[in-house]
Structure formats: structure tokens, C-alpha cells
Design a protein around this nucleic acid. Structure first.
Lengths: 226, 226
DNA sequence: ACAAAGTTAATAGTAATACTACTAACTCTG
DNA sequence: CAGAGTTAGTAGTATTACTATTAACTTTGT
């Protein structure tokens, strides 16, 4: 069940990722909405600003007025996604007094498949989830990653990992691999989802119900409690 | 310690990945050797056949005679890498009667950093390892993955995972997540290596001694023996 | 020995992509 | 309603991925 997000909340994205805030105009929102549709349809490599311009009945350079290049647009989308996940996680763990319950709830939000569009925004979260698990590593697997990291391109992701790691450390302050564990779980869960669809011989997950939440939750607690 | 590979052994790569076997000529070997150097130097995105042609004192189209495009060249290199790893793994587990010892040895080969060039071939394994952990997921994260999979582009990788999974199942035939566990470990180990260098806040691994073999070995045995 | 056949590699392209400079038009402010 | 600022479209350029053609060299059969 996806947490309903109230109308007065916006997912914040680091402003160095856009030239003009796509959230500030109708055209900007259409750019983001259609970018998600098209990256999902075509894959990131085959997606171009020219095609996007055509799709929104405008021109290539219009898109360039919002985003410097398609790589930054991808990074923008991924930051939006992690911001959204962190928001949902905050709700999921709110008022849970026990750290183990918090970790369970957090891992559920992070590893569970997104199947429902929360429709609180112009963003289609179901498609964005599919983009994230099949394209998001391209955001950091570049030669420019160190520079981009310095400029805050991965802020949202790092903050989310940091928050979950701190729950782990609440459960066991002596556990020395909290960050390694959390990043392995988050990326691993996306990987399994991708494998279940495209390379099924590499996973035990089923295409239709890739339920790896149990697997990764079990992994976390087995390793922490030692 | 890297297993010395005798001169009469060749790492086999599926032949649909090249137009002319680069192992069959001096020029082909120079193409592969320099491709590894340049992909490492420039990153896969900035690497082009034109630049490679210049590097080897030849032309772009010469490279095209060996490889259909740069994506296939990357897939070729990655298949070579996994073929090489499987070869080393075979040696590492040979004559070990106990399945748990076999798994330990296999995970060591798969997760340990490659720091020594075995110099049995024209391939620089240290650089190739760096390419694999920072570029290899681009080989399958494409829109054409299903088709490429059918054509055997990921053969070597799948065979390696299959072999390690079967060791897991020897230890515990009831364990239902053998394949998920193995692919999570292999990809996770590369991810941690990348993070330790470029996004250190996402890992507890150290840049200089990213020793995640213990972490992943512990993970495997904790989950299997339940 | 040497013509025919096959192999190899360089030249010179094309189409598509990523990105930019410039200009026209519209809008907001005093 | 003049002038400043904003927005978006046209028309480019440089680079990239890839291909068609041709020239030259090597091998093979008689």
C-alpha cells in the first residue's frame, strides 16, 4: 500500500541538476512526465531530447532550457525517486518504538516492487521504479562520478542509505558493515528484479512476484545479530 | 595469488561476439590489449573505435573488421573475464572434498580484488578487473538484453553463477535462494569495490583494502545454514 | 611461375546524436 | 506603452557510429 502524499508536499531535488525547475511550469512537468514514459519505452541509450521535444509538441532546445543534458535529466529523475522513497520510509517507520521493527519497515519500502501509482504528482512512480532498477546505475557508473559526487548528484541516495544504516547501528552498535549491508541490499534488490525479468537463470525470483523482501530482510537480521 | 595459466590454454569466448577472432592475429591481440587500456583510461562512453584505431596506428574500419560495434567488444571482454575467473575457480576448488571448503575457495576467487597480472596472455587482468566492476553492468542494462541473452552474450557469466549455485546446493539442498544469493554476492562485491573508490559514504570498505570477501563469505554461510 | 581467388586495411563517405548560437515573439513592469 | 526580461523555435556545428568502395597484399592451384 502506498502512502498517500498530501498535496502540499513536494519532493525536493538538488537544484544543480536542472537549469530551470521543471516543477515550476506546466511545460516542465510535461517534460518530466514524458521523459519517464520515453526512457521506459526506448531505454536510456535510445532516448534523445529531439524525440522528447517531438513528443511534447515542442522542440529539442526547449528541453535543453530545463536540463543541460540527458544524463542530468536521468540523475534528476533518480534523485526524485530516492526523495520519494525516503518520504515514504519516514512515514513507514514513524511511531515505531522498536529499531528492529523500523528496519523491517524500512527494508520493505526499499525492496518492495512499486506497483501502484500514487497519483499525487505528474510523476508515474511505477514507470519510474522500472527506470530506476534498469538504468539508475548508469547515473554513477561514469568517468565523471567523482566530480558529480562533489556537486551533490547523489545526495538523496546517500541520505537514504545513511538513515537506514543508522537504524542498523541502533540495533547493533558494534556491527562494522552497516553501510556495506544497506547498499548491498538496495542495489541487490533492484538487480534481482531486473534479473527476474531478463536473465531469470541468475535468480530464484519469479518474474511476476519477485518477492525478495524476505530474502533481504533475513539477510540483514542474520548478519546484524551476531 | 593468481594461478599460473599454462601456455597451451586459451580462454574461450562465444564466437558470435566477434567477426574475426582477435586471438587469431597479432593485430587482433593489439586491438584487445589497447581496447582494455583505453576503456580503462577514458571510460566506456568516451571510448571510440576511431580513437582505438589511432592508438594502434591503424584506422577505425580495421577495428570494425574484428568487432561489429563497441558494445560487442565490451561484451567480449567481459566474457573473457568470466571465462578466466571460472578457470581460476576450477583450480581453486579442485581436490577439495568438502563442499563448504569449495564454496569458500570459490567466493574468494570471485570477490577478491585482482591485483596481479598473470601475464599469460595479451590481456591485462588488473585493468580488465577495473573495467568489469565499473562497466560490466552496461553489458546487460540495455533495451536489447533479451535478444542478446538468447544469442548467448552472457553465457560465461551464467555458467559461473550456475557452478557456484550448485556448490551451495550441495551444502544445503533445501536452500531456496541459491542463485539469488550467488548473483547478489558477485555483483555486490563489484559494487562495493566501486563505492569504496568513488562513493565511500555508501560502504565500509576501504579504498586501499576493500576486503569484502569475509563479509560475503559470512553472508553466504549465515543464510545457507538455517 | 603466376593468374585467380581470397584476405586485409585504408579512404571517403552517411545518418544520427549532442549540443549551441541566434532570433523572433511574447509578457511583465513602471 | 516603451523597454527589459523571459521563452521558445530555427538553423546550425562537431562528433559519433557505422558502411560502401577500392586498393593492395597473400595465398593457392596448376
Amino acid at each position: 500500500m502506498i502512502q498517500e502524499i498530501p498535496g502540499n508536499v513536494r519532493i525536493q531535488v538538488p537544484e544543480q541538476l536542472f537549469l530551470k525547475d521543471p516543477d515550476s511550469s506546466e511545460l516542465g512537468k510535461r517534460i518530466v512526465k514524458n521523459a519517464i514514459d520515453m526512457i521506459y519505452e526506448l531505454g536510456f541509450e535510445n532516448f534523445t531530447f529531439k524525440k522528447l521535444g517531438q513528443q511534447i509538441g515542442s522542440s529539442e532546445s526547449t528541453v535543453y532550457r530545463y536540463f543541460e543534458n540527458k544524463h542530468k535529466l536521468l540523475v534528476y529523475l533518480i534523485n526524485w525517486y530516492w526523495g520519494w522513497i525516503e518520504y515514504r520510509m519516514s512515514f513507514a517507520i514513524a511511531n515505531l518504538p522498536d529499531a528492529s521493527d523500523q528496519l523491517k519497515a524500512a527494508l520493505k519500502v526499499v525492496t518492495e516492487e512499486v506497483v501502484e501509482d500514487s497519483s499525487f504528482s505528474h510523476v508515474n512512480e511505477v514507470l519510474l521504479y522500472k527506470i530506476v532498477f534498469s538504468e539508475s546505475s548508469k547515473a554513477y557508473l561514469t568517468k565523471d562520478v567523482d566530480n558529480e559526487n562533489k556537486q551533490g548528484y547523489f545526495k538523496s541516495y546517500k541520505r537514504l542509505c545513511e538513515r537506514i544504516s543508522s537504524i542498523v547501528l541502533t540495533i547493533n552498535p558494534q556491527y562494522p558493515h552497516a553501510k556495506t549491508l544497506v547498499s548491498t541490499i538496495i542495489e541487490g534488490s533492484h538487480l534481482q528484479k531486473f534479473f527476474s525479468i531478463h536473465l531469470p537463470s541468475l535468480t530464484n525470483c519469479d518474474k511476476n512476484s519477485c518477492d525478495d523482501t524476505d530474502f533481504f530482510t533475513d539477510m540483514a537480521f542474520s548478519l546484524i545479530q551476531k
